[in-house]
Design a protein around this nucleic acid. Sequence first.
DNA 1: CAACCTGTTCGCCA
DNA 2: ATGGCGAACAGGTT
Length: 263
Amino acid sequence: MPELGEVEYYRKQWDAGLRKKVTRVELHGKARVLRETDGEELGRLLTGAVLKGSEASGKQMIFRFDTGWLGVHLGMTGELRLESGGHEPGKHDHVVLFQKGRALVFRDARQFGRVRFHAGESEPEWWTRRAPDVLSEDFSEEAVRKFLARRKGAPIKAVLLMQERFPGIGNWMADEVLWRAKIAPTKKAGSLEPAETHSVWTESRFVCREALRIIGTDWSDPPDAWLMNHRWRDGGHCPRCGMELKRAEIGGRTTCWCTRCQK
DNA sequence: CAACCTGTTCGCCA
DNA sequence: ATGGCGAACAGGTT
């Protein structure tokens, strides 16, 4: 599920544990989500550690403890939950940090998500080397133009999903950006007019800003005037012109767009 | 039972 | 070396 706004929403679920000590760590032994992370070290160093702060960037999150850093990526089905101190971990609760009176839970059925740990004071390189946020200065029109030129042969839909330039944008956000920019998702990235590239830039920023404001706050629904609320229903209609929306697989993902508005 | 899924990574090929 | 694509990952839901 999680794209930019949802990730921010989940990050805040653990805010209740800020400045509090972890009393116990429960891990699911061979969970794929840990990948190369040493679960034994994670459990040992986080037991007794205090949660000092957290940050989200794109689809990634980092939680800072006084003994190290916990990185979280939610993949397709991951979620962060706040549970009671008596929480009995379910079969998909791969990482559970117990505190006095609460439990901070990472749950992920499909295990495409990932949890990693980095011991010590200094930020891990997998965090410092992440892509610049869409809402940062570094996400310039020039940077977008260069990126589309380099990926000139790929459909623009597929390019918008590339986290190295559009961190946080996922399937529905990419469709939303292209719908607002009035660009067909099948169009090759290298064939966009300068005005279209400009639109990809500004609409990416708009959709990210609004997703954070609307979904990131309390998981409210975006307005009905957004494509997002119409894209999964069979026979959904374009909220701008009323045309029946088209669905097809582009860039390996189900894509929804308006063939009348988007050229 | 089969198809589908808001993500990433890998291997193959051009 | 670089870019583009399809498969694989795993399990719940429709």
